[in-house]
Design a protein around this nucleic acid. Structure first.
Length: 425
RNA sequence: GGAGCGGUGGCAGAGCGGACGAAUGCACCGGUCUUGAAAACCGGCGACCCGCAAGGGUCCGAGGGUUCGAAUCCCUCCCGCUCCGCCA
């Protein structure tokens, strides 16, 4: 959520920033106009309320002095004002709600350094690491959706029987691999991030704080009977850990990580990437997250990208880092870097991590504050990123580590999690 | 799910229709004293909105209602605790 004061004081700058996303910005004007009206009404209401308070005190005093008829006259006057006051209050409250509803739907402004672009195709590649297009053998050019069934480590036919399209099931070494990747990602970030096992069913308030609601309700699974939502990412519960709290500035940055299942309806992409593990309704991911001061945020963003990157690199996979351009950014994002792993069998760069700085967009929604020096409170900044999202890394490993003579090796970094085995299959 | 009790400032906790944004204690900040610290004493100390300011307003779990006036009374909901029921 953008700061209403910023919209008041520099509406044109806000609109210019939003326009870089290629979106229509008339809502900003609408908000400014409604806000102005709301404040005027609220101010009139405040004056009335102050008069009523004064009159009420008089009534109390007059009663004590035994002047009952004078008191009755004042009461009558106050009652009239009360009716006016209620009408004004109702109107102001209605407009305030309207302003908030609009604000919740206006996306974050991109960071000045975020690259301009109309969409995905214009995301600049920041660096490519470990990639040699000619460095792969024929045996590595087989997609994981063929290798998986061949070695009995991926059984999507039965997953579909159990849960329907776009659900997957790993078995044997494939299941071990999926779990090992989570453990691996947790272990290598445990130096700086507190491990959390958060709830994965959350309330609407929680899903609103991070930005999925109200605009993207169709993308999430909803448990209607209890009005709870399945999290699309651990970002959601982690961000709300300190919702409606004022954080101790000395403790910032405050870092958390969690391995959870993530649930996505993929409503807009039915029929796309339906094979294998490229796009699934349910998958596991280790998320790293932090609350930081605005001063700390830029370097923490770089540090989180470096962590996510190192996790992929140390698995022996080729990857590239891209920066997300203004036209491709998520609603809540201020600045974002993605890491894409190279999967030789499918011959694709697969997004396996997205690391973002949200500014105070989420913390304003969630009312998460700290006390900067010099008094008062301010919104903290939030940052998060996938340390490792399992399915696509799984796919890249299975394809990359397929041996010419058959079988799939365990990447060296994962050996500690394979109970002495050196083969996934 | 049923019954009972409860939700007040960073924490504990009083207030139960009128001058209450709210006693008191702890914590915290500043000062006096001290070589320094502790103790003691003095002072300060919630968040938010509008306003250049003076000042005004909102907030006692949330939302409605009663009243001239609600932290205080009534209703609904949410959360917590205790007991019962059910149950990995």
């Amino acid at each position: 959520m953008l700061d209403i004061r910023r919209i008041r004081s520099e509406p044109e700058a806000v609109k210019a920033a939003l326009a870089r996303r290629g979106i229509e910005t008339s809502d900003v004007d609408r908000v400014a106009e409604l806000d102005e009206r709301q404040r005027r009404l609220a101010s009139e209401r405040d004056d009335l309320r102050a008069r009523i308070k004064g009159l009420s005190k008089q009534v109390g005093m007059l009663h004590k002095e035994g002047k009952a008829d004078e008191a009755a006259a004042v009461q009558a006057e106050s009652r009239d004002l009360g009716e006016q006051e209620q009408a004004l209050a109702a109107e102001a409250a209605g407009i305030a709600t309207e302003v908030r509803d609009l604000l919740l739907r206006i996306p974050n402004t991109p960071h000045p350094d975020a690259p301009d672009g109309a969409g995905e195709a214009e995301n600049p590649v920041v660096r490519v690491v470990g990639f040699d297009p000619d460095g792969y053998g024929e045996h590595q050019r087989i997609p994981h959706w063929e290798l998986g069934p061949r070695y009995g480590i991926l059984d999507n036919e039965r997953a579909v029987k159990i849960s329907g399209a776009m659900f997957t099931m790993q078995r044997k070494g494939g299941a071990t691999l999926a779990r090992a990747l989570l453990q691996y990602a947790i272990d290598r970030n445990a130096d700086d991030f507190e491990e959390v096992r958060p709830p994965t069913l959350v309330t609407s308030e929680t899903l609103t704080a991070t930005g999925q609601l109200p605009k993207f309700a169709d993308d999430a699974y909803w448990v209607e009977r209890d009005d709870l939502w399945c999290i699309p990412t651990a970002e959601v519960p982690l961000t709300s850990i300190h919702r409606d709290e004022i954080l101790d500035t000395a403790e910032l940055p405050l870092r958390f990580m969690a391995a959870t299942s993530c649930y996505r309806r993929e409503a807009g992409s039915a029929g796309r990437d339906t094979r294998g593990m490229l796009r699934t309704h349910e998958f596991d991911k280790v998320e790293i997250f932090q609350y930081a001061t605005p001063e700390q945020a830029p370097e923490e963003l770089d540090a989180m990208v470096a962590r996510a990157e190192a996790g992929i690199r140390d698995l022996g996979l080729a990857y590239r880092v891209i920066e997300i351009c203004t036209g491709d950014m998520g609603q809540s994002h201020h600045r974002t870097f993605d890491i894409e792993v190279y999967a030789p069998g499918t011959d694709q760069w697969l997004e396996v991590s997205s690391v973002s700085w949200f500014g105070d967009y989420q913390s304003r929604r969630g009312n998460i504050r700290y006390r900067p020096g010099g008094g008062g409170t301010a919104m903290v900044h939030t940052l998060n990123g996938s340390a490792l999202a399992v399915p696509r890394v799984w796919a890249a490993i299975v394809e990359t580590y397929h041996r010419a003579d058959g079988g799939i090796d365990v990447p060296e970094a994962l050996l500690p999690y394979f109970r002495g085995k050196t083969r996934i299959a």
